[in-house]
Design a protein around this nucleic acid. Structure first.
Length: 290
DNA sequence: CATTACCTGCAA
DNA sequence: TTGCAGGTAATG
């Protein structure tokens, strides 16, 4: 469910309100949501630690964890079980995961799988109807490995048409599955891949090898434009996505083709079609997109 | 490369 | 009742 704009929207809210908060307790109603370590170790490492910066890489959220106690010079090693500097809380919401930052005493949220209770009474709640989402602890090496495994950040200034061309060069197959591959570009999912291809006027099944330089430039601009619009509109809420305050985004009102099959193309009026490409439901204008 | 598994709820 | 859903890892 959450793609780059949804994760970024959540990140912005958490980055504003979380850093400096101390973890008072952790509840794990559904241990399935925890990848590693085991629930007891996870809890022991988190409780007492202070939350730091909240970052995003692709669809991953990364929360920096400070040690439980400021590391005294005479005690260079962390106490057993306590987090050491350089530990990170990673979150991937997969299809239906949401993160809510709730005020003290807020009514419970359905399908809460993990609760990180803060010392001031607020709660960071991880909720997930489909139970695909995961939360885990990682060290700097694992975060670096994740960094390397993912393609460029499409909204960063280092993402150029040349980098997109390089990511797609020597790769065969249909364009859309390649865009969904997080090694090509980090953060695109089914909604924004369809929207980017529509904006670039490229057919989702088009062979990536046939793209001209002009096609690549249009695709590059389109990817950035649809993602930036998604962020501006605080995400696309068709079914499950809600922001950190529990409110939906507005971008579903702005889409060109996604879930608009049977309706006229906003550009040419041709009826938008829905097919299956690379196993995913795919919406496109058969006239505009070649 | 394509297909399947992982889950649950909802629309067709 | 079936199949599909905004994702990814694990299989043929």
């Amino acid at each position: 469910m959450p793609e780059l704009p949804e994760v970024e929207t959540t990140r912005r809210h958490l980055a504003e309100h979380l850093p400096g908060a101390r973890v008072a307790a952790v509840e794990i109603p559904d241990p399935h949501a925890l990848w590693r370590p085991d629930p007891a170790t996870f809890m022991a490492r988190l409780v007492g630690s202070v939350l730091g910066a909240v970052r995003r890489r692709g669809k991953y959220l990364i929360v920096d964890l400070a040690p439980a106690e400021p590391a005294a010079p005479e005690l260079p090693l962390s106490i057993d079980g306590a987090p050491s500097a350089g530990d990170y809380l990673l979150i991937h919401r997969r299809m239906s995961g949401n993160l809510f930052l709730r005020a003290p005493g807020a009514p419970p949220d359905p399908r809460t799988v993990v609760v990180i209770r803060l010392a001031d009474g607020r709660e960071l709640r991880f909720c997930d109807m489909r139970r695909f989402a995961r939360m885990w602890l990682a060290d700097a090496a694992e975060v670096a490995a994740l960094e390397r495994a993912l393609g460029p950040e499409p909204l960063s200034s280092t993402f150029t048409a040349q980098r997109l061309a390089a990511a797609l060069a020597n790769r065969r197959g249909q364009l859309k599955p390649l865009l969904l591959d997080q090694r090509s570009v980090a953060g695109l999912g089914n909604i924004y891949a369809d929207e980017a291809l529509f904006a670039a006027r490229l057919h989702p099944s088009r062979s990536a090898a046939t793209l001209t330089a002009a096609d690549l430039r249009r695709l590059h601009r389109a990817i950035r434009a649809v993602l930036a619009q998604g962020v501006r509109n605080e995400g696309t809420s068709f079914r499950d996505y809600l922001g950190a305050v529990g409110l939906p985004g507005r971008n579903q009102l702005m889409v060109g083709v996604f879930r608009r099959h049977g309706q006229p193309c906003p550009r040419c009026g041709t009826t938008i079609e829905k097919t299956r490409v690379g196993g995913r439901g795919t919406h496109y204008c058969p006239r505009c997109q070649q």
